[in-house]
Design a protein around this nucleic acid. Structure first.
Lengths: 133, 133
DNA sequence: ATGGGTGCAAATCCTTTGCATCTGC
DNA sequence: GCAGATGCAAAGGATTTGCACCCAT
């Protein structure tokens, strides 16, 4: 189904796939430049969006510092650090009953596509930092 | 606990409270200007953030068009329209087991503060629009 | 007079767009 | 030679910041 990707697209996809965090477009740009020094930021944005539309990546909106990208295409949940803004994957899905989702979708009038649970709190790193102060 | 608010802050809080949708900072600015014509956009941003820090409002990150603000201070869930970007309240909470949340928080290392369920899909208005095409 | 609150304008940050060039076919 | 892809620079939109002014204390 997916033909061989153009080299720029491939490089971008690889960078996002290899990332342990969720990189911003700027971070992707910086990392991709090691492989393809001539690439432009605009191209990175263009390709990130294309890959997102193709369903190979997903885009996570995060306040302030711009969108972050994620190569996990299957549904999963996130934790957002309210201190440093880090966006972390939650390894195990937070289970929600199908009925609860359907009910919520019905009452809001939305035709349910996907969903996400977001936890807000202080990440491990920031907890340590506050302990040391 | 809350002393009388300064008039600008009060006006902004009132506008957000009275809104049926979740207004962006710009929308708040436009509406507040009816009451207080001299107010500046910077002040609106400043006060929106202050009110958010005081816990009187909450800020919802939404891709592309800027943050939206919400006067409901108790926890609740949202539906995001993948066509038009509308952000809707879900009237009834999507129930999640405390244990599932704790477990998710533990596995991501976060100290759980709050959480939110987000549904993604097509809102009622957009569904109609596509039917008519 | 002093400090906080404010308006205005400039600055910043992220992202998109216009356009001329380049590439593969 | 053409269509699509790309780099560069400029434009755009949202938000923040610098700064002088004003008001109440």
């Amino acid at each position: 189904m997916q033909k061989t990707m153009k080299p720029n697209a491939q490089a971008i996809f690889d960078v996002v796939s290899a990332a342990t965090n969720h990189p911003t477009a700027l971070e992707v740009y910086e990392r991709v430049r090691r492989e393809r020094p001539g690439i432009g930021l605009a191209t990175v944005y263009r390709l990130l969006h294309q890959l997102t539309e193709q369903g190979l990546l997903c885009e996570l909106e995060q306040g302030g510092e711009g969108s972050r990208f994620d190569a996990r295409t299957h549904r999963h949940d996130h934790a957002v650090c309210t201190s440093c803004g880090a966006l972390l994957d939650i390894p195990q899905d937070v289970v929600i009953s199908r009925e609860a989702l359907q009910e919520a979708a019905r009452s809001s009038g939305i035709k349910l596509g996907s969903y996400e649970v977001r936890l807000y709190g202080q990440c491990a790193t920031c907890q340590e930092r506050s302990n040391n102060v």
